[in-house]
């Protein structure tokens, strides 16, 4: 990763378009800058393109025009650039996506050993430390199928952290969880935010957004409708679309 100049964003998106067919455009010109050490929460109705946008940042989705620059590296068709970007971004998925045939320990150490060429023992030591950090130290030899959803998601976070990313992307990390497990995952994410890691989080947990986020980004219909600090965004939204969305989700 190139060293960033002062004030230079760690992720910079300029007029990003993505379409599957020209009539079906998912991202209609998204421009946004993410800065190092900040927590950005992305919200919006389903189908608004927020998930596609976050997946564009680490190249899981290709964009058709515009530019995405992560840590000074532009995402292009070049495999070298793609790998450079992915090595900076950890990603946590809604459905955890742990490897079911590997134990928790092997899930975490697979990529460090085979991608970063760490020695087995070093990788295991670091994995244990990470499991400690997410509160899963006692589960190293279990298999994903033996864990609850919340536990699997915490392992998935540890697995991403094992690659030493500078940015963590969360794609609705608590949406597939039972209510009593949401907190244990949010606690881990809050701890990451406290350690000044750059986080981009798609979530419907407004409590988490208000408490932890530095910025809120509101997506609708493939575009960013409104951005702002949590206080301003939830307290005094400017756009009609935002007010409608907030009134819909805050009713309950």
């Amino acid at each position: 990763m190139k060293t960033l100049r002062a004030g230079e964003p760690i992720i910079s998106c300029r007029d990003v378009h993505k379409w599957y067919t020209p009539e079906f455009e998912v991202l209609k010109g998204v421009s946004y800058d993410f800065y190092e050490g900040e927590v950005t929460v992305v919200i919006g109705p389903s189908g608004s393109g927020k998930s596609t946008f976050v997946r564009t940042i680490n190249g899981l989705e290709e964009h058709q025009s515009g530019s995405v620059v992560v840590g000074g590296v532009e995402l292009t068709h070049s495999v070298k650039n793609l790998n450079a970007v992915r090595s900076q971004c950890g990603m946590v998925f809604q459905s955890f996506n742990l490897f079911p045939h590997l134990s928790v320990m092997d899930n975490i150490t697979l990529a460090p050993i085979w991608v970063k060429k760490e020695s087995k023992s070093a990788a295991r030591d670091r994995a244990m430390a990470l499991l400690e950090r997410v509160g899963m130290a006692g589960h190293a030899s279990k298999y994903p199928g033996q864990l609850s959803g919340g536990e699997q998601q915490r392992v998935a976070i540890a697995r991403s952290l094992a690659m030493d990313p500078s940015i963590m992307l969360f794609d609705e990390p608590t949406s597939a969880l039972d209510p009593e497990m949401i907190k244990e995952v949010l606690d881990v994410m809050t701890e990451l935010a406290d350690s000044r890691m750059t986080l981009v989080v798609i979530t419907h947990e407004l409590g988490f957004a208000k408490a932890v986020a530095d910025h809120i980004v509101f997506f609708d219909n493939g575009k960013i409708v409104e951005t702002g600090s949590p206080d301003a965004f939830f307290g005094d939204p400017r756009e009609e679309r935002t007010k409608l969305f907030l009134s819909q989700i805050l009713q309950h």
Partner: peptide
Amino acid sequence: EAAASLNL
């Protein structure tokens, strides 16, 4: 996708 995000 999980494997790709880990750069495998």
